[in-house]
Structures are given as C-alpha cells and as structure tokens.
C-alpha cells in the first residue's frame, strides 16, 4: 500500500471515537505489557542482587501483600505515565488510539490518575459501556470527561537522500 493511501485512511479516522472492540483488544495488549514489565522488574532485581553478592539466582519470594499490590500499582503508574505524556499506551499505539479530554486536549495528571485507578479496578466492566454509549464512551470516560480517539499517525516520509557524485564519474 502506498504512503499516500495510508495517509488518506489515517486522515479519515483521525479524531473519531474508537469502539468497544478496539479498546478491549488494546487494553489486553496493555495487560500483557504490564505483566512483562513486572516480570522484567523482578528478573532485573534478581540479577542485580546476584551480581552484588547473592548466592543463588532465583526470583525473590515476595509476601502476599506485594503479590496482590505489585501488578495494580505498576499498571496505574504505567497508564498515568502514558496518558499524561503521549496519550498512548503500548496497546493504544498499536491500534492508533489516543486518550484525550472531551475537548480534545491532553489529559492532566489528576484526571489520568483517577482514570487509571478506575480502569485497573473496574476496567473490564466500565469499558463495556462503550458498546452501549451513543458516543462510544466507557463509564470512566463519562465520569472523567475523556474520550479515546483514533489517531493514526501516517508513516513518516523518508528523509531526503543526498547523493554525492564523485568527480570524473558519469553525470
């Protein structure tokens, strides 16, 4: 597919609210990403501990509190960091989505934190409302006045190529 037709398709959907199916799949990707981050953090911690005098290379045996809290806490941090900066998590970026305020502006820290807490706690249920809402708004979107829009960034045009013709060569 040519770059121009890609750009045309991206322009056609830009700024339209995404539907429930896309958002569920993107959320699933983010779930996997947070899991991978948590696993990576644990392996990294283990590696550092082993390098600095540990005897065996094995994952730390964490307590029940850590087990229960680590994933949600990391998920909230991950979501807030993504939404307040680019508006995209990894899953959103993959599906060309962006979380914005209803005005179209960037989500602030407080709003993003509130949204992340709801999503991590009741996300699966509150997102279902996007299938019913006349403007594809999940429950947390209605509560915090946010929207998830399509924003396909068209493929970057290649950088200009500079050609150096050696002297005496064919012109």
């Amino acid at each position: 597919m040519s770059a121009s037709s890609r750009r045309a398709r991206a322009d056609a959907v830009r700024g339209r609210r995404a539907g429930v199916a896309t958002r569920y799949v993107a959320a699933g990707v983010d779930f996997l990403v947070v899991g991978a981050l948590l696993f990576g953090a644990l392996v990294g911690f283990t590696a550092v501990r082993y390098l600095f005098g540990g005897e065996t290379f094995e994952l730390p045996r964490s307590g029940a509190v850590f087990d229960a809290a680590a994933f949600p806490v990391l998920a909230v941090v991950y979501l807030v960091a993504a939404w307040t900066t680019s508006g995209r998590t990894v899953g959103s970026a993959l599906f060309g989505l962006r979380v914005v305020r209803d005005t179209g502006a960037r989500v602030g820290l407080v709003r993003a934190t509130g949204r992340a807490l709801i999503c991590v706690t009741f996300g699966v249920l509150s997102l279902a409302w996007a299938g019913v809402s006349t403007r594809n708004a999940a429950a947390h979107d209605l509560l915090l006045r946010t929207s998830v829009v399509h924003d396909w960034t068209a493929a970057r045009s290649p950088a200009p190529v500079s050609v150096v013709i050696p002297e005496g060569g064919p012109v």
Partner: peptide, 11 residues
C-alpha cells in the same frame, strides 16, 4: 452514533 470529537487537536 456521535463519534466525532469536535475540534480534536492533539498538542
């Protein structure tokens, strides 16, 4: 459905 975010401008 009303899917357009009016004045969507990403900064």
């Amino acid at each position: 459905r009303n899917l357009v975010v009016p004045g969507y401008h990403w900064t």
